[in-house]
Amino acid sequence: MNIREVIVVEGKDDERAVKQAVDAEVILTSGYGITEETFRRIEFARLRKGVIVLTDPDRPGEQIRKRINDRVPGCKNAYLLQADAFRKNDIGIENAAPGAIREALEKARCVVETAADVFSREDLFEHGLLGGPDASRRREALGCILGIGYANGKQLLKRLNHYAIGREEFQRAAARLAEGKGA
């Protein structure tokens, strides 16, 4: 599978895993300490080919993703579930199977700068994504279906609104969830 966009990952092991899964150019952030030169390379790649940010599904990975999206608006974001990136007490892209990486990249979404508040907390309550004993698992499954990764309730609401997910797409995903059909 050939990916047109440049994929941004955290480290060399992540790069190796991505290159085993797809044919793509990769930029390394070298963790949280992203240099100005790396930010310039990411911006240049975004202008020329587009960028997909694929960071580890953990807190540091989300912080790196946020820094990149804040500095270089217009990047697509791809998410792996923690379960797909976990091996021997370690969470990271380098642990994911090639198929999981390809699926995450296929579902990559771009942050919309002028996000409309299409969804509210009531939508999340209505579909059992907040406040119930099974809400966390349901949010994880919905995030997988939509390709926006696992999120707590507040993060999920933000992602639904900032990735320009329409009401119809959300309803289809919620119906799949209600039928017990995950991703």
Rank of each mutant, 00 (worst) to 15 (best):
V18A: 15
D70F: 02
M1R: 10
F44G: 11
C75M: 09
A116W: 04
A96H: 11
E43D: 14
V53T: 09
T38A: 12
N152S: 01
I64W: 00
R40P: 10
Y163V: 04
L124H: 10
E179F: 00
A45H: 08
L130R: 06
H127C: 00
G143N: 03
D90T: 12
G153W: 00
E113G: 00
Q63M: 07
I7Y: 05
H127I: 00
N161I: 07
E36S: 15
K49Y: 11
L81R: 08
L130A: 14
R4P: 01
L177G: 06
E126K: 14
I68M: 00
V53P: 03
R167M: 02
V26I: 13
L142I: 12
N69P: 00
G143L: 03
A116F: 04
S136W: 02
F119P: 04
R87A: 02
V111H: 02
G99Y: 06
E179R: 07
T29H: 00
G92S: 12
H127Q: 12
A24G: 11
G153N: 08
D134Q: 06
A178C: 01
I145C: 10
I148F: 14
D84E: 14
A104C: 02
E43Q: 15
A178Q: 09
G92D: 05
K154F: 06
N95D: 07
D14V: 07
A100P: 00
E62K: 07
R4G: 08
V22C: 10
E106K: 11
K12H: 14
E36F: 11
N152P: 05
G131T: 03
D123K: 09
V8N: 10
R4C: 02
A174C: 13
L47S: 13
R41H: 15
A104M: 05
G74Q: 06
R16C: 10
V18F: 06
G131L: 07
D58S: 08
D117M: 02
R41S: 15
R121S: 13
A116Y: 08
D123S: 05
E43S: 14
E122S: 12
E62V: 01
E103Q: 12
R67P: 00
K49A: 07
M1P: 11
R16D: 09
I68R: 04
F119H: 15
C75Y: 01
N95G: 06
R4T: 12
I101Q: 10
C110I: 06
L124E: 05
K88F: 09
A104Q: 03
Y32N: 07
I148C: 01
D14E: 15
R121G: 14
A174Q: 12
A85I: 04
F86K: 13
R172K: 15
D123Y: 02
G50I: 02
Q155V: 05
T38I: 15
G128P: 03
R4E: 15
G131V: 13
P98N: 12
E94I: 01
R121Y: 14
V6C: 08
I27D: 13
D84S: 15
L177H: 00
E37N: 14
S136T: 14
P60N: 05
T38F: 03
R71I: 04
A178R: 12
E62C: 03
K154W: 03
G33V: 03
K66G: 04
E103C: 02
F39P: 06
L47A: 15
I165K: 05
A164S: 13
R137Y: 11
R46F: 10
R59E: 03
I42M: 09
E15L: 07
D56K: 07
L130K: 11
T114I: 02
G61Q: 01
T35V: 13
